[in-house]
Design a binder for these strands. Structure first.
Length: 107
DNA sequence: GCCATGGCTAGTA
DNA sequence: GCCATGGCTAGTA
């Protein structure tokens, strides 16, 4: 069994283009439902090094969670380029674009 | 100590 | 707005 960070990395890398997950969803899928904050730390410190699709993670409300305006618009553009619809409030419809690893089990 | 959360509550309109 | 939460892939000795 790998540690939490390794499991989270695996899940993050599995999110297909054009889909999104929430921080808490990634944490739960990695086996630790309350470790959403840990997911932010992973994305913050390891995205560049491991080429993570960091832009495909949003908060539980389906909104872009980044702090400064510049990074937010960058994330918005990355998502839109993949076909994700992001409105003027950086809001995304979770019902349409959320990725659920459980439903993607292949035999 | 850090971190890009998330859930709950107080207090205003 | 407040604060409980949780795991530690960075950098020094």
């Amino acid at each position: 069994m790998q540690n939490f960070t390794e499991r989270a990395l695996t899940i993050i890398k599995q999110i297909p283009a054009g889909r999104i997950m929430t921080y808490g969803q990634v944490a739960a899928a990695a086996g630790s439902p309350r470790a959403a904050r840990q997911v932010t730390r992973i994305l913050h410190s390891m995205s560049a090094k491991y080429n993570l699709p960091w832009h495909r993670i949003v908060n539980v409300q389906g909104r872009i969670a980044l702090l400064d305006e510049e990074s937010r618009s960058f994330q918005r553009e990355m998502l839109q380029a993949e076909g994700v619809e992001v409105d003027s409030n950086d809001q995304i419809d979770l019902n349409r674009f959320r990725f659920d690893p459980e439903k993607d089990v292949h035999c």
